[in-house]
Simulated assay, not measured.
Amino acid sequence: MSETIRVFAGDCTTTFEGSRARTQRGRVVVVVKPDRTVLVHDADGYQPVSWLTRPDSLTVETDASGFGLVARADDQVLRVRSHDSAGRAEYPVTEAGAPVGSHPSTGEPLVRTGGAVVALDSGTEYKLPAGATVLDETCEECGLPTMRAERGAVFELCVDRACESLDDAVRDRFDGEWACPDCGSDLRIIRRGGRLLAGCSAYPDCETAFSIPAGVVVGECDCGLPTFETARGRRCLDGTCEEFADG
């Protein structure tokens, strides 16, 4: 769900103690973000006249006569005290992201923020695999956006894992495709400890397992395991393989 941003305005004295020590007075707008970051803006330019990012503590007091706040981070202290309050308000706010369409059920906007697609109004979140790209196309089953992800091959799937599973797609393509270099048993596609792995089917007798990188298989390493083309160059499925130690 959305968090809230608080906005205060008025004739204020702003005092900063620390590396940017100064005292100022003027009619300003004070913005307090959900992470406690405080920004004090005056009439000029885009940069605040004073600020404190993610302070350790924040105290805000309001009454009929006005408002005051104190933010502290180590030896830095930001104080704002109003002499004449022009007003205060609180608004819902979310992280901003690139628009990627609208939710097929609710109609609310969808945005990509970091590693997820998020519905702005409800806060519903669809986690994306590392390196995934959100596409313009929508899922034929549910209408959500589709994504492109590389895990040995290129897969285009719904962003909702409950609709289409990347794990299942990789398993269908590569389960049993490669042999364990330690015992010769098949490597199975599994998820363990939050990671997608090619793990030995002889487990627990053989504990060999390799994390599947974001990339596509382009050949075979001298050790017998597949070679992947990734954003950082070519590498063996075994990230410690000496064949690519200097690559």
Rank of each mutant, 00 (worst) to 15 (best):
G224A: 08
G114R: 08
A198T: 00
V77T: 13
R195K: 12
R25T: 05
S201T: 14
V30G: 00
T37Q: 09
P99A: 12
D160S: 15
A202N: 15
E243T: 15
D136L: 15
D35T: 04
V100H: 09
C200R: 13
A98E: 12
A169L: 07
G199C: 11
V154G: 02
E156W: 04
E137W: 07
A198E: 00
R191T: 15
L187F: 09
L237C: 06
Y126Q: 12
R192H: 12
C183G: 11
E243S: 11
E220H: 06
A43M: 10
V93C: 09
G224M: 06
V31Y: 03
E229T: 04
A231H: 08
L52G: 06
D121M: 08
Y126W: 15
C200W: 08
V70A: 08
D172C: 06
P226G: 10
C158P: 01
D167T: 15
D11N: 07
V77Y: 01
V118G: 01
R232K: 07
T133P: 00
F67G: 06
V218D: 12
L39F: 05
L144Q: 02
A86F: 05
R195V: 05
P204S: 10
C158A: 14
A43S: 13
M1H: 14
L39S: 03
P213R: 10
S85M: 14
C163P: 01
C221R: 01
E207F: 11
G176E: 14
G152L: 15
R151Y: 00
R79Y: 04
A73M: 02
P34K: 10
E141I: 03
C223W: 01
C12T: 01
G219L: 13
T13F: 02
G26E: 07
G233D: 03
T23Y: 08
E242T: 14
P34N: 10
D56E: 15
R72S: 04
E125I: 14
T37W: 08
G66Q: 00
V111D: 01
P34Y: 01
T37H: 03
V70N: 04
C12I: 00
L225F: 04
R54Y: 08
P99G: 12
L197R: 11
E229F: 03
E17P: 02
C142E: 04
Q24A: 14
P99I: 12
T15E: 07
A98C: 08
G131A: 05
V31E: 08
C142A: 11
E108S: 07
T227G: 03
